[in-house]
């Protein structure tokens, strides 16, 4: 009976792409504007997003990269510093998985470096998935249940989700040129 329970519960586990599917090394080209002259929409989210975001392994890998590639130096553990906060709901260039990947890949003019050629697209997707955990926007069963930091920050599983909005805190933006 006990064995059956274990087996049953094991059936509900997430599908693990332990190594990640081999993916074409192409950059994503997510749109970051909400304006579509004469109508239109941003289009469906890149299908890879769901796979990375719903996978604990990829999120853990993203967390490791977040520290090793010094993302943490600018964005802290989500609160920001040299770069904007990532745990809030304000996303200048969009908070969707594919939009975050686009920001990592392309860089952004007010100080976000372009990581193209330094990280593989797989690594960018993993990073984006981890970044989404900082605002608690991934499923609780794949988010790390303990904080990755030595200082006391709440683990994402305890935080309230902050769904992304396309707003732009005035104080963060550099002056228009």
């Amino acid at each position: 009976m006990a064995v059956a329970l274990v087996l049953l519960s094991a059936c509900d586990r997430e599908a693990r792409e332990v190594r990640g599917k081999p993916l074409p090394e192409t950059a994503v080209a997510a749109q970051t504007s909400q304006l579509f002259p004469a109508g239109g929409t941003a289009g469906p989210i890149d299908p890879r997003a769901k796979m990375y975001e719903g996978n604990a392994y990829h999120i853990a890998e993203g967390g490791r990269l977040y520290r090793q590639m010094n993302c943490v130096g600018c964005h802290a553990n989500g609160g920001g510093g040299m770069g904007p906060a990532l745990m809030d709901d304000q996303w200048r260039y969009g908070g969707r998985m594919d939009q975050i990947v686009a920001s990592i890949d392309q860089g952004r003019p007010n100080g976000m470096p372009s990581w193209r050629g330094k990280l593989t697209p797989t690594q960018m997707w993993q990073l984006a998935a981890y970044v989404r955990t900082l605002s608690a926007n991934v499923a609780k069963d794949v988010a790390p249940s303990r904080s990755d930091t030595m200082s006391a920050t709440y683990p994402p599983t305890l935080a309230k989700p902050k769904p992304p909005t396309d707003s732009d805190p005035a104080a963060v933006k550099g002056p228009a040129r």
Partner: peptide
């Protein structure tokens, strides 16, 4: 304030 940071993260702004 100037960077619009989220102070729920105590490690923000170093």
């Amino acid at each position: 304030v100037a960077g619009g940071l989220d102070p729920r993260d105590p490690t923000a702004a170093l």
